[in-house]
Simulated assay, not measured.
Amino acid sequence: MNSGRREFLAVAGAAAVAGYAGFRGGRSAGPPEVKAPVQKPLAGAMSQVAVVKAASYSHEIADAMMRGILECGLDVTGKRVLLKPNLVEFDFNTCINTDVAVVAAALDVFQSLGAEEVRIGEGPGHRRDTYAIAALTRYRTELPKFDDVFIDLNRQDVSVVQGFADRKEFYFANPVFEADLIVSLAKMKTHHWAGATLSMKNYFGLVPGSIYG
């Protein structure tokens, strides 16, 4: 794992805890506007959370996602959505990636809720042939119009954000800035450095390999 990507995890965690708004999603006509971070107090802030059980990788996944989204009052009508699965490498003997059924369900749910565009993006930090991993994990064969909706974030143009957490600047792939909503479809598992891979750790793949290795 490259030190630049490790640094991202540390500063991203700090940004979340401190309530910084230096890194924003949301579409733009060009590179993001350069601004100093604006600190937002967390006091009084509350996130909408829903915990919905799905017993298996079946149609229940889409139903559970839909219930959770509706319970949280999330409106994606006319929005551009970027789905971020955990797609890092492949091993026939274990489960280390977000199951294709989860990604397919999310794609269907957000499209049915009226999103203007739903795309899937990942920038693996281990295996760099992203499309080969997508084939091994059945993404290419089981996701509708895969080649139209999938983005290899390691190979996209990038833009810089200045004042991200306590760093002078940080680069992200442009599709990150073009999205109104980024959805982390994490694969819960242990991790040798972070301890566990959850929703925040999954954003590791937003950091472009073309810059940070």
Rank of each mutant, 00 (worst) to 15 (best):
H126D: 10
T137P: 03
T141I: 04
Q111P: 07
A134K: 01
E122A: 11
R119I: 08
R128F: 15
T130A: 13
R140T: 14
H126M: 10
T130Q: 07
V118A: 02
R127A: 13
L113Q: 08
I120R: 00
P144F: 04
G125K: 04
R138L: 05
G125M: 05
E117K: 13
I120K: 03
L143V: 12
A115D: 08
R140M: 10
A132E: 05
Y139W: 12
P124R: 01
E117Y: 11
P124L: 02
G114Y: 05
V118C: 00
R128I: 13
T130G: 13
E142M: 10
R119F: 05
E142A: 09
P144K: 03
I133H: 06
D129S: 12
G123K: 00
R127F: 15
D129C: 08
Y139D: 00
E142R: 10
G125Y: 07
I133T: 08
E117D: 11
K145V: 11
D148Q: 12
G114P: 15
G123R: 06
F146N: 03
D148S: 15
E142W: 08
Q111V: 11
E117N: 10
L113P: 11
A132H: 07
P124A: 02
F146L: 09
H126G: 09
E122D: 14
V118S: 02
D148K: 10
R119G: 04
Y139C: 04
V118W: 03
D147M: 07
E117T: 14
Y139M: 06
A134L: 03
D147H: 11
G121R: 02
E116L: 08
P124W: 00
T130D: 04
Y139A: 01
E117F: 12
Q111H: 14
R127K: 07
R140E: 08
L136W: 08
R127S: 14
G114L: 03
S112V: 03
E117C: 12
D129I: 11
G125A: 13
T130S: 10
T130C: 15
Y131W: 11
T141R: 10
T141Y: 01
A134Q: 04
L113I: 07
E142Y: 08
P124Q: 01
Q111D: 13
R128M: 11
E122V: 12
L143H: 02
V118N: 01
L136P: 12
H126P: 15
D147W: 01
I120G: 02
Q111L: 12
L143Y: 00
D148T: 14
I120C: 00
D147Y: 06
T130V: 14
P144R: 05
T130K: 02
E117Q: 13
E122P: 15
D147I: 01
S112P: 03
Y139T: 01
I133P: 06
D148Y: 14
F146I: 02
A135I: 06
T137V: 11
A115R: 01
R138S: 10
